[in-house]
Design a protein around this nucleic acid. Structure first.
Lengths: 180, 180
DNA sequence: CTTGAAATACTACTACG
DNA sequence: CGTAGTAGTATTTCAAG
């Protein structure tokens, strides 16, 4: 059940950040069937041992390990993480909020973004087109705790003109798996 | 759902008088400092070896392994997965769409949910309160491919009255890490 | 109930064909 | 890419706090 060991993650991330868009597209295009099978498996369960993974993709263990390392160093695999069940962690409530800023200046956006990342339970924050400037998704315990967060933190984010909250009643789908 | 005890602290639960709280919340509160340190580490990088993890949390390897297994069996750790860099995988575009259905009937909702989960690149789909019935987030290659998806799939989802698209211009924050 | 030390089985990893 | 060998790890057993 041990995760596959990584060698030189720092270097891989640095390299990934420096790659160009065309290089990234090429990296994907260079994937064969086996690479895709590896990625599909690791996206589903990365706690599998390398020998078991090798057997699944019908490859010898060293060859499989080399491919996994290559995928990590190329930056295509951004990392291997444990996913925590929000309900079990006491954050069963999910809220999507749309934010409109007072002014559309670079300073205003920068100040908001800096502060938004520090909001407890903020899982996502994106600049969007349309009637909102930002969309954020926030995980919190219940409606009480969200109300507190809303009154004490969200309304005081810098430059906020309006916040519209969409409370999630049912999570139909929430995945990190990307179709290959 | 798994009602397996996370840590054998029946006495603590009784003393806390948290009998009215959910079993999941109790599971979280049974976590001590070491469990939280383990979860924080595994949320950041789960490819670390067990011996290295044990050293980080100042525990022997077997004891550390037992705690990790307990966290998995309790369901608090939902899984260990590899995260793929969307840009590198040729899906640099993220779109958030709000969906309004024709009618608010159980059949209408069920049909939509079933179909929505099959949309290629759909990462999230939630029922929400407010002016929309659903929010979905979709990863795709570029505006062309999204336009195709929009015209060929999204508009044909069952029972859809209106779809409003918010294209993500900049991803400020996108994390799976949950604050403990 | 949890921990840590020792022993075993298995795995990652290296070198080479 | 595969085989063989080495080094290191995960995992079990067991004794003790």
């Amino acid at each position: 059940m041990n995760a596959i060991k990584v060698r030189g993650i720092q270097a891989a991330e640095a390299a990934a950040g420096a790659t160009t868009a065309s290089a990234e597209a090429d990296a994907l295009h260079a994937l064969d069937r086996i690479d895709r099978a590896i990625l599909r498996q690791l996206q589903t369960d990365a706690s599998i041992s390398n020998v078991a993974l090798a057997a699944k993709v019908k490859l010898s263990a060293p060859a499989c390990l080399r491919r996994v390392e290559r995928l990590k160093e190329s930056g295509l695999i951004r990392g291997v993480v444990a996913l925590i069940d929000p309900k079990a962690a006491g954050a069963g409530m999910l809220v999507i909020i749309g934010v409109v800023l007072d002014r559309s200046t670079p300073e205003s956006f920068a100040a908001f973004e800096k502060a938004a990342q520090k909001v407890a339970g903020c899982m996502e924050c994106h600049v969007v087109t349309g009637e909102f400037d930002y969309f954020m998704t926030i995980r919190t315990r219940d409606s009480d705790s969200f109300n507190r967060l809303h009154a004490e933190q969200l309304l005081y984010l810098p430059g906020v003109r309006q916040i519209r909250s969409f409370m999630v009643l049912k999570e139909i789908l929430s995945t990190t798996k990307f179709p290959l």
